[in-house]
Nucleic acid binder design. Sequence first.
DNA 1: CATGAATGAGAGTTCATTCAT
DNA 2: GATGAATGAACTCTCATTCAT
Lengths: 226, 226, 226, 226
Amino acid sequence: MTAREAGAVADTATGPGAGAKPAGGRPAPKSARGIRTRAALVAAARQVFESDGFVDARISDIARTAGVASGSFYTHFDSKEEIFSEVVAQVRDEMLHPHVRARGGSADPRDWIAAANREYLRAYRRNARLMAALEQVSRVDQQFAALRAERASAFIDRNAALIRDLQQRDLVTSRLDARVTALALSSMVSRMASLVFVEGEQIGFDTLLETLNWIWFNALQLPEPS
Amino acid sequence: MTAREAGAVADTATGPGAGAKPAGGRPAPKSARGIRTRAALVAAARQVFESDGFVDARISDIARTAGVASGSFYTHFDSKEEIFSEVVAQVRDEMLHPHVRARGGSADPRDWIAAANREYLRAYRRNARLMAALEQVSRVDQQFAALRAERASAFIDRNAALIRDLQQRDLVTSRLDARVTALALSSMVSRMASLVFVEGEQIGFDTLLETLNWIWFNALQLPEPS
Amino acid sequence: MTAREAGAVADTATGPGAGAKPAGGRPAPKSARGIRTRAALVAAARQVFESDGFVDARISDIARTAGVASGSFYTHFDSKEEIFSEVVAQVRDEMLHPHVRARGGSADPRDWIAAANREYLRAYRRNARLMAALEQVSRVDQQFAALRAERASAFIDRNAALIRDLQQRDLVTSRLDARVTALALSSMVSRMASLVFVEGEQIGFDTLLETLNWIWFNALQLPEPS
Amino acid sequence: MTAREAGAVADTATGPGAGAKPAGGRPAPKSARGIRTRAALVAAARQVFESDGFVDARISDIARTAGVASGSFYTHFDSKEEIFSEVVAQVRDEMLHPHVRARGGSADPRDWIAAANREYLRAYRRNARLMAALEQVSRVDQQFAALRAERASAFIDRNAALIRDLQQRDLVTSRLDARVTALALSSMVSRMASLVFVEGEQIGFDTLLETLNWIWFNALQLPEPS
DNA sequence: CATGAATGAGAGTTCATTCAT
DNA sequence: GATGAATGAACTCTCATTCAT
């Protein structure tokens, strides 16, 4: 279980196939210059999305920030949505710390959960402003909302599997619907991350993490390690 | 504790001062005609916000839906934000069911929590499309986000008070920060309401409610009633 | 048989229902000012279409010529095509000289034909530059081509009826397909009008008219009046 | 008299100098590769003009269809007009069937006219979509209109010569202006070809041909062959 | 107060043309 | 010669806001 899995409900930036360029849109640039310009546009877009949000970001600003003519935007992208998903793909890659993947050792599910929550919150904090834009766009753009839901589901499923496992070992009551529980706890984590790192709610990182862990542990009735 | 208190994190429509007209904007109309037009505009705005969301709603659509000339909008409101907060005030009043307020009897905090969650989910479901618009606008409009936070805080505080009370009676560990815990659990409820009633996640009402209750109870380590 | 009937093949500006405003588009203006502006736009559009043709006419030029802001165009029309059809409707009305309609007296079909051709050529000459734009647009815009064809057909049909009548009186051979013949002779007239009045072919009006009449008469084998 | 002579009024694709490259524009390519690219562009242009018409054809589409970079277009042509006239030159050559040129035998002018009309209609039908583009462009581009007129005149002159010949042999009345008559009859043929083969008017080939022949014969009062 | 038209800044897009590689 | 990306002028269209009637 990785950090992303814990709070992935709100997270387009996570999911399988990370690193792959989205298929749609204009053909990939073939010259070195084209590659450079495209990269400059994506970097500029990220900056603009972070400071203005998705709705208020203007294509002309992105182009100007990238240092290219406004028409050049359309050499590489068809729309604001398209470059946004490119930015999101980039951030998704950045959010995957190597140490998040390689995990193991402890047999205590509490350790897994705690680690996952910690990594999720850290990743969210690192990319807070872009996450804000991402939440905005899923409200505005149905297509993005669907994408977000689809991607998140893989992780919800894994969380649900964890819960089911605990249920079979009689550590968690069978009365709970594993998937709904996973969804609820994951939602809590991502929503709190947004409140604290995007909306400025004043809560210390450790307090936040410990509280969330506490709720997870008790919700799943995981006993204190002896 | 009322329904609104449980999930008020995401809820601009709750808070002190309910029913009061916003301070800014145009003077309240005196003539009967003026009052009628204003009311028609607010009703129309609600319709338009529900079907188009905040970002895509156009002033001219609101006016046309209200059956008045587009210029008349500005006789009563200065901006889309202003009429939106008027709509929100209206919904806030609707969300206050009498039976939610008058509560009492049971001494078991579990009953309070269960009732609060049920009422919150019901209210959210009744106004799902407007809640969607509301979430959108707080992403887009800084002013609204602040407003939302401020209003929600009163209820978080009450939830926190409940937790503190339980802590003093040694029903809940003192290691928890009462306010943060209240925030996290409330966030979970409002986020799940949004997922299910706005984004169409397929979860039955009872399953949803029971799962959320379960998490609340266990997080607060409230013992089964004997 | 009227002038329009003779050469109506290429003529959107003729047909039943002349004078009626086209149904589509924005609502008709309700204030005096709105009516004035709309009329100014149509007049300006005519000017611009006449000097630039349909393809090169810019909406901003039409607005500037009308003395209104460019956005005001869209208060009254949805597109260049729409205002063009308005202009065409206007010209159609102008092309209907009263004396063209009220005809009668002579029993000799040669007189009818000669009068029809003369009136058609005169009308075309009066509106030569707009007719040029009209021909351009029917090449460019499928919708207009269809419209033109549909409207023209009524007149072709009447010409065909004339021919059929002559065939029944054995003045014209029955081997001819009446409709195709009517189409061919009408096409000839409208095409020559375009060549002479739009493209500047140097042919005197009387020579042109007499030649066309000659061809009609002989094609239909109408005997010289004794 | 050739097929092209009958209806050449509307036909840029016919005239003296067939096969010659236009004088203006870039120098002819020397290298084999250059020749290949140029030919590919012309072939692609024809395709694009046929499906999109002149106005809507884009340089970039032509280049892409030719399988070359868009910039390469300008190695060979200066403008859309220039490559269009190249395409037209190519079609003009194709329209010259050998059997159209080699004619003789019959002394009856009716035979000449009938053969010419038949060949013209066939040629037009073979190239209908390009002829449509050709008519469009002469409406839009003054230069092309002039070119069309100039080229057509040679054939009109020949038709006129035929008529003058018939006048001198007292087969046609001297009251007719030979050139205007030639123009009118030729216009009729080309316009009908356009109606039927481009605009989809439902007339059978034979009916069309016979009707047009009939009008020619009677207009020129050519007696039935005994 | 209501009307409904006018305004015009501003954003998005297109594409012929140029040019460094 | 070919490439393919960059350019930027030119246009279209939208809509919040104003204002004369």
